[in-house]
Design a protein around this nucleic acid. Structure first.
Lengths: 104, 104
DNA sequence: ATAATAATTAAACAATTATTTAATTGTTTA
DNA sequence: TAAACAATTAAATAATTGTTTAATTATTAT
């Protein structure tokens, strides 16, 4: 299980998370947004998956990757702890969204 | 100029930031909290300084390192952008604190 | 000046990272 | 069944990272 910090410290991987926030996507769709090759993307996805930041869903020939919204906010916990202050408003917002399922 | 994400993705460096939040410290004081050597710490401090997360102040034989509170919250911006939601409450809290100078 | 102290820089190294090209697996379609 | 497609794994490599020991710089105290 990869650390969320390590997984998110890479620019491309954060970009992937931002793309996945809008909708679940296949590696094929994702590659179009980057300049590196499919195996490189695959490697990034493996890292994100291992950090539990994305989930994978196989549908025939394709695989769909989705953002784990809750986990994507885990780093915010660090700032809460660091500053001893709760970011309740944001979290409630996200958790409501999650309850309603799907987004945008 | 090192990226804040890269600088903060290391466990020891985040620990250093947490220690510095309480009060400015010298490398000598900081080393007591870790298992690695002084040069290793020095290298971590250089990275944090290059990311503008800490500032350095020379006083005779010693150097005092302080947390750059504002910068330490920069990563929160990512989550704001990602989720399109403002964490105003936290930021105001911090900025008030800064205005009052010193903490704890 | 010399010795002691605080911290850094230098040199070296093992481990990890991001990436590429080539080969492989699994699924659908003709 | 064979060809095409989607994606992964394998192998190789260059670059970066965290760390150590040894040497260096700078400041203070004797």
């Amino acid at each position: 299980m990869e650390s969320v910090w390590k997984a998110m410290s890479d620019d491309s991987r954060r970009e992937i998370l931002i793309l996945l926030r809008k909708k679940k996507m296949t590696p094929g769709e994702l590659t179009e947004h980057f300049h590196f090759t499919a195996p490189a993307l695959s490697s990034h996805l493996r890292i994100l998956k291992s950090a539990d930041l994305v989930t994978e869903e196989k549908l025939g020939k394709n695989r769909y990757y989705s953002l784990n919204e809750k986990k994507s906010l885990e780093i915010v916990n660090f700032f809460e702890k660091m500053w001893g202050y709760k970011l309740d408003s944001l979290k409630e917002y996200i958790e409501n969204k999650e309850r309603k399922k799907g987004h945008e």
